[in-house]
């Protein structure tokens, strides 16, 4: 295994968390090209994101999920490249950092 002890620990922590997205009414989402713009009404911030961020938000807005449930749901609905747990953890961490997703 290529994971270090701390990365393994982090992955396990992510696995145990339940993630919740900002509700649809607090976001204004506009797809432009490869990029999608998200205006976050609560913070007044504009985010420029690529896949799979809009897809993650859409799924989590339906119901809060843990990471493995989210990964399965993404796989069912979208043809996403590089859909690994580690990649999803990284995307979730980014969305949490900007306030679009929170840990329940």
């Amino acid at each position: 295994m290529g994971l270090t002890g701390s990365a393994m620990g982090k992955a396990m922590v992510m696995q145990a968390m339940i993630f919740r997205a900002e509700p649809a009414e607090s976001l204004r989402i506009q797809a432009l090209d490869d990029f999608t713009l998200i205006f976050h009404r609560r913070s007044g911030l504009t985010h420029l994101v690529t896949a799979p961020a809009p897809e993650i938000l859409a799924i989590l807005q339906e119901a809060p999920l843990n990471r493995d449930e989210l990964l399965a749901r993404l796989g069912e609905r979208y043809d996403l490249e590089d859909a690994s747990p580690a990649a999803l953890d990284a995307r979730l961490a980014e969305l949490i950092a900007v306030g679009l997703v929170e840990v329940q």
Binding site: R28, D33, D34, F35, L37, F39, R41, G44, T46, L48
Partner: peptide, 26 residues
């Protein structure tokens, strides 16, 4: 230029984009 690149460049060229909030975004 693609719309997303124009968006980024124009928000940088705007002095009150942030202050206008959602109206500026739209």
């Amino acid at each position: 230029l693609r719309a997303s690149e124009v968006f980024v460049r124009l928000t940088q060229a705007s002095t009150n984009y942030v202050a206008l909030g959602e109206r500026g975004f739209e």
